[in-house]
Design a protein around this nucleic acid. Structure first.
Length: 433
RNA sequence: GCGCCCAUCGUCUAUCGGCCAGGACACCAGGUUUUCAUCCUGGUAAGCGGGGUUCGAUUCCCCGUGGGCGCGCCA
């Protein structure tokens, strides 16, 4: 039998990272098994489920290349099926009408008078005593179906074989299993994944920042890196592999390798992984991405291709996230923005002013290329009695304003003699301690 | 309160009774006789507590403790 799983989000305008990981696990499961990955939009909340919210959701799925099979089901189209199911349950005595709070009659599902049991693919046999479960509303007094009913009726219609969702649904599952049976359907198999939690161990929320797929996209994370990272949150291939291609993940994925304890999001590790992906991007693609970031900066919009290309070549290997690109400003502006701390540390020492002043003169004596620049700096050090290599940091701060960057000689060669000399001069006149 | 789920380095994880408890991120030290966000090498760092079962438990069972979830005419 072909396995059919579904991702059934309710569109709210932003896509939560925990939800997306559930989608990833469903997708991986389906692709591994050669089954179907289906989409159901639970858009019965008409206030929040706007066309824009739905588009945001689909865009997030497309961005992560979670391609779905068949036409998505829209729950809002299913009112008749839900109502009909409620009628059947009523007719069979599995449900009854009741006015629970003066709001008019609603339809209540009668929980069977027996313990609820189901087999969870991750957690084993899960059970709950009959007396610990109460009947529950399936149709509101205004006629609208409640989540439980709609969810089960639609899963039946979609012929879902495996429901893979967050373990915050475990309690619902006891009810859902009963609903499936009452509707004459065999319940699907279930697996409940642990949640993604924050530092405090609470479910990851928007208050924690970076809670939505869009946040990562905006910051310049790559979708393949985010996919890879999220897949590893709660799942591992069983060996030491971490950076994996989709094909490898599809091949290796199985439910019995999914952990059943909650995982905490580690932005640093995601950033590291993203850097590995960035490093192997084709140069043109890297440039296009950098260009997209620059387009949002007033100073970065009109950089000619000829100026941008060498900077990209220099910086790609050390770019981890595309938002890093906003720090490239010193390559293009006349003057860098000087970081106070770096200035203090790099330009504050005695003798630095004299050495840099001498360097300005020495730069005139050699060709302005990497080798010539290095020679000039070495010579300036010798003359000033500074230990070899020690002047580099001062030069770096004087010319780029910050403490870190690419290779110094390459950076200066790229900057050009005019900017380099002007900045060195500025440093000797205004910044040295 | 009642019920359910969970528990290995700071974090993500490996281990399916015998491990010097392995890897990764982060961190620290060193190297790439120049910086560095790349790269290489090395290091610090873990089995929540108490009972069992067993020749032997991180691993199996029980009880605590801690955290999470559920107990809606929300999804």
């Amino acid at each position: 039998m072909i396995q059919r799983v579904r991702f059934a989000p309710s569109p709210t305008g932003s896509v939560h990272i925990g939800n997306m990981r559930v989608a990833i696990f469903n997708w991986l499961f389906a692709r591994h098994a050669g089954g179907r990955f289906l989409l159901r939009i639970e858009d019965t909340d008409r206030e929040r489920s706007t066309p824009e919210a739905i588009e945001t959701l689909l865009a997030a799925l497309r961005w992560l290349e979670l391609d779905w099979d068949e036409e998505p089901m829209y729950q809002s189209d299913r009112a008749n099926a839900h109502a009909e199911a409620a009628e059947r349950l009523l007719a069979a005595g599995a449900a009854y009408r009741e006015d629970k709070g003066g709001k008019g009659e609603c339809v209540v599902f009668r929980m069977p008078d027996e313990d609820a049991v189901f087999h969870d693919e991750l957690k084993g046999e899960l059970r709950k005593k009959s007396e610990d479960m109460a009947d529950f509303v399936i149709v509101r007094s205004n006629g609208a179906p409640v989540f439980h009913l709609a969810n089960v009726v639609d899963d039946i219609a979609m012929k879902i074989t495996h429901v893979l969702r967050g373990d915050d649904h475990i309690e619902n599952t006891y009810r859902h299993v009963a609903l499936f049976r009452a509707l004459g359907a065999e319940p699907p198999r279930y697996a409940h994944f642990p949640m993604i939690v924050n530092r405090q161990g609470k479910p990851y929320s928007k208050r924690d920042g970076d809670a939505f797929v869009g946040d990562f996209r905006e910051k310049g994370f790559r979708p393949d890196a985010l996919f890879n990272y999220l897949a590893l949150l709660g799942w591992s291939p069983g060996d030491d592999r971490e950076k994996m291609t989709r094909a490898e993940m599809v091949e290796a994925f199985s439910l019995d390798r999914v952990k059943n304890s909650p995982a905490q999001m580690d932005l640093q590790k995601l950033t590291h992984l993203n850097g590995l992906y960035v490093a192997e991007m084709p140069a043109e693609e890297f440039r296009a991405q950098a260009r997209a970031v620059l387009a949002d900066c007033a100073w970065g919009r009109d950089i000619p291709e000829a100026a941008l290309t060498p900077v990209c070549e220099l910086m790609q290997s050390r770019t981890k996230v595309f938002s890093d690109v906003v720090d490239w400003r010193y390559f293009f502006d006349a003057m860098p923005t000087y970081d106070e701390k770096a200035v203090r540390k790099g330009l504050g020492k005695d003798g630095v002013r004299a050495a840099l002043t001498r360097l300005i003169a020495l730069l005139e004596q050699y060709p302005f290329d990497e080798a010539g620049i290095e020679k000039a700096i070495r010579e300036a050090e010798r003359e000033a009695g500074i230990r070899e290599g020690k002047l580099n940091f001062a030069v770096r701060v004087a010319t780029t304003g910050i403490a870190t960057g690419a290779g110094l000689y390459e950076t200066l060669a790229l900057l050009g003699k005019d900017k380099t000399v002007a900045r060195l001069r500025h440093a000797t006149e205004h910044l040295c301690g």
